[in-house]
């Protein structure tokens, strides 16, 4: 497997002009701005192999978008090594740019008042895509994303979901080898999200393109990627297979019990933390190791109609990930 993306000890510092309220302070800041250094990325290292589909998660302001922007050559790294496909992204070598694509969920490249196909034609010229390749890519993408009827409709008349799918077409026409996706499902409804997710998995498998995907949406991560990289406050917190992330952070399981008769609720406290009581439903959270034993005892000692053992909600797990430090590398 070839290493496509290599990041070593990457640091990115922003210099921010602090704004003070008031007119005169505003004038003053024009001449003598007060500067503040903000560390956006703090010594990040990871690498991605060809064809991998990596989820990049973290809370707002963790540095996800910054990393993607550095990878696509928009931002200049303060220090550290960044190499993608053997290029230094910042140099913006056209050979490099022709092999990547950046998709941002909230920003559009499609011309608002024109049909999407016009922007496609523009991209064809910009990326110098040969005629035959262009036709083939377009046909393939159009059928995969089911946007056949939408190509000649002015973009402003499309729904957000339709627009996003066309944005993807525009970004993939030149068959990039590396794809950076920043919150591609943001703002979409559940159906729209699912379509995009299915497409991404499918596209990754078909084209073998390397993809990095940032998202807030846990379903994106759950259903799309195998490997996750978690960053928080500019630091790499976790890098490894998704199931390891859950195992190492989800130390507890959730046991849902439906009682068939009234019982002394207090007695549940000996097994774990009572999360919710809403007769006939009782929810308790139990350490992972003892869950089998506990459920057996509950079945014995209480009038149970039904019992369910579930993983902790993913959001809870992620919250823990953000709180805790670095756990382990896989």
């Amino acid at each position: 497997m070839e290493r496509v993306i290599l990041i070593d000890k990457l640091v990115k510092e922003f210099v921010v002009n602090t704004k003070e309220p008031g007119f005169f302070a505003g004038i003053r800041s024009v001449f003598r701005p007060k500067k503040k250094r903000v560390l956006a990325l703090d010594n990040i290292s990871f690498s991605v192999d060809e064809g991998e589909l990596v989820g990049f998660i973290g809370p707002n302001g963790a540095g996800k978008t910054t990393t993607l922007k550095i990878l696509s050559g928009l931002l200049y790294p303060t220090s550290g090594l960044v190499q993608v496909l053997g290029f230094d992204p910042w140099e913006k070598n056209h050979k490099y740019l022709k092999n990547i694509s950046l998709v941002m969920g909230q920003k559009n490249q499609l011309w608002w008042d024109l049909p999407a196909v016009e922007t496609f034609e523009l991209n064809r010229a910009i990326y110098e895509i040969p005629n035959r390749d262009y036709k083939r890519s377009l046909d393939e993408l159009v059928s995969l994303l089911e946007v056949g009827g939408l190509l000649n409709v002015p973009v402003r008349r499309l729904s957000l979901g339709q627009r996003m799918r066309l944005e993807l077409v525009a970004s993939l026409l030149h068959r990039p080898r590396v794809l950076f996706l920043d919150e591609p499902t943001i703002g979409l409804d559940v159906l729209g999200q699912t379509k995009i997710r299915e497409f991404l998995v499918d596209y990754n498998r078909r084209s073998g393109a390397t993809m990095i995907l940032t998202s807030h949406n846990m379903d994106d991560i759950l259903n799309v990627v195998k490997r996750v990289i978690v960053i928080n406050k500019g630091r790499l917190v976790f890098d490894g297979p998704f199931h390891l992330l859950v195992e190492s952070f989800a130390r507890k399981k959730v046991v849902k019990i439906y009682l068939s008769d009234s019982a002394d609720i207090k007695k549940f406290e000996q097994y774990g933390k009572v999360v919710k009581v809403d007769f006939p439903e009782v929810v308790i959270s139990v350490p992972r190791e003892t869950v089998a034993l506990t459920s057996a005892e509950i079945l014995q000692n209480f009038p149970v109609a039904d019992i369910n053992i579930e993983e902790e909600p993913l959001e809870e797990v992620i919250k823990k990930v953000f709180k805790g430090g670095k756990v382990k590398d896989a």
Binding site: K69, S72, G73, L74, K92, H94, K95, L97, K98, I100, S101, L102, M104, Q106, K107, N108, Q109, N123, I126, Y127
Partner: peptide
Amino acid sequence: VSGGFDLILSKPL
């Protein structure tokens, strides 16, 4: 402001 410039910047032109 809208960030559209980022997409322009990431193109080979």
